[in-house]
Design a protein around this nucleic acid. Structure first.
Lengths: 93, 93
DNA sequence: CGGTATCCTTGAGGATACTG
DNA sequence: CAGTATCCTCAAGGATACCG
């Protein structure tokens, strides 16, 4: 699960600073709360994303790619392009 | 469509010679005719796989990865591992 | 042998409402 | 603000039967 949004999220996070939940939602047009949360939780579980909660009220939470995450970016890039081109019925000419 | 089988098929084809339909089916435990055919057709359309039909009867058809396809293998490999690890709920410890 | 046709199941993902 | 709970939809994928 999460194919649809995990990559976009990772991709966005790599070029952004720690981003708050709603900001992230705004940046991912079409994503729903359900999917955003699910995706973030799994990315966190798999150790790619860090969730930071500032126990304030109203709540403030932000998400960021792990520092070493920058290293995965080339792979991420390939993954993205390749997947788009060959895994989803994409043909070009 | 095809996420589930396209990669496995490509992966298998890269280390095999031209493979016949039923052989391919045997090598992909669990795949159905529908999916095998669909996947192969799309991989053909996107130019990664070549279908060769020997107009004989009974029919003989085989599939192979395009020659330059070997070049995509590293990417394929990354894609595969990465996808398994981070896109399908895979955690390790 | 190498498929196609048909119908069916399942779960990824979505919409909406609500809450600490 | 940052979610969770609930219900729903739809299409990816599967099962089975049949065909040239």
């Amino acid at each position: 699960m999460g194919q649809k949004w995990k990559l976009p999220i990772l991709w966005y996070l790599h070029e952004a600073e720690a981003t708050r939940y709603n900001e992230l939602k705004r940046r991912m047009p079409g994503i729903t709360n359900t999917m955003l949360t699910k995706s973030l939780r799994e990315l966190e579980k798999s150790g790619l994303v860090v969730r930071r909660s500032y126990g304030t009220v109203p709540p403030k939470v932000d998400y960021s790619l792990i520092e070493t995450g920058q290293a995965l970016l080339p792979t991420l890039n390939e993954l993205y392009k390749w997947g788009e081109a060959h895994m989803h019925g994409g043909v070009s000419a």
